[in-house]
Design a protein around this nucleic acid. Structure first.
Lengths: 150, 150
DNA sequence: GTGATTGCAAATCTTTTGCACTAAA
DNA sequence: TTTAGTGCAAAAGATTTGCAATCAC
């Protein structure tokens, strides 16, 4: 049954489960075998607009859409995707890890009320002045989190 | 560093356990009883320059300096101090909570190599443009983390 | 077949909680 | 006293890991 989902040419069957040629390409580019689990998760992650998910949330989503994946595999997959640049990790909450499908340079709103994340439009924020990296280091990344409350 | 005063009513027991006038004031201002544990932890936290600590690290430090405090109490104390504005929480690492003795408005370097935090001098960074808070929310705080490697 | 991937359960790690005991006011 | 604060051990989450079974190539 996973066949229909595995093929880029398969036609749409259920909403949200349409196979994407892009998903296969992404996995191939990352050097990851297109397993049933990875395809299903990639499809959920990259099907629409940019998303911010936790492992738990993605696991639930997979379950709801009828995909059988263990939580351990969801964790593994999210980290593999992150390592190969398909995802980006966002740290806003100690104790929970968020993964962002938008890997471009951008920043976030964090809604303290419900623990939701949203991208900040790239041109609505700007850093006027950056300090130099401390001696012997280089800037790996700059994260701006705007915490908003109800 | 001239803040080391003997408190008249304190009973000198072990070295490094002399109370600071400032520490007593801080606790009083926060409405927290000056217990042996809170005094000891406050002394470690506020004795010198600004610090960034985790509960575990502070607990170890207390142990080394001969103060007997349970880890649970360290957690409780750090949260009480945070709630009363004596400390600030910094989120840079999912899975670990850092507390900052500098409660003024400032940002951080995070050294990925060793998980260390450092304050960024206030005037060496500036946000040129901030987005508006999404409808129905207000900006509670803006955090900038510059992650440095190597 | 062979090596990569998965699932499950157990293990880890950090943090919180329940509750009897201790200490400040 | 009276009530806040503490310690301990157990509980709770989130995440990782070990290993046998399964799957992709």
């Amino acid at each position: 049954m996973s066949q229909i989902f595995d093929r880029p040419t398969a036609r749409p069957t259920q909403p949200g489960l349409r196979p994407f040629a892009g998903v296969l390409q992404k996995l191939a580019a990352a050097g990851l075998r297109p397993t049933r689990q990875r395809l299903a998760l990639a499809r959920l992650l990259f099907a629409g607009t940019d998303r911010h998910v936790t492992a738990e949330a993605l696991h639930d989503e997979a379950e709801v859409s009828g995909v059988r994946v263990s939580l351990a595999t969801v964790y593994n997959t999210l980290h593999q995707f992150t390592a190969s640049g398909l995802l980006r990790e966002v740290v806003v909450d100690s104790g929970r890890t968020y993964f962002d499908t938008n890997t471009s340079d951008h920043h976030h709103f964090f809604f303290e009320a419900d623990g939701r994340l949203a991208d900040i439009p790239g041109d609505s924020i700007a850093l006027a002045r950056l300090p130099e990296a401390p001696a012997g280091t280089r800037i790996a990344r700059v994260d701006v989190i705007i915490r908003v409350a109800g």
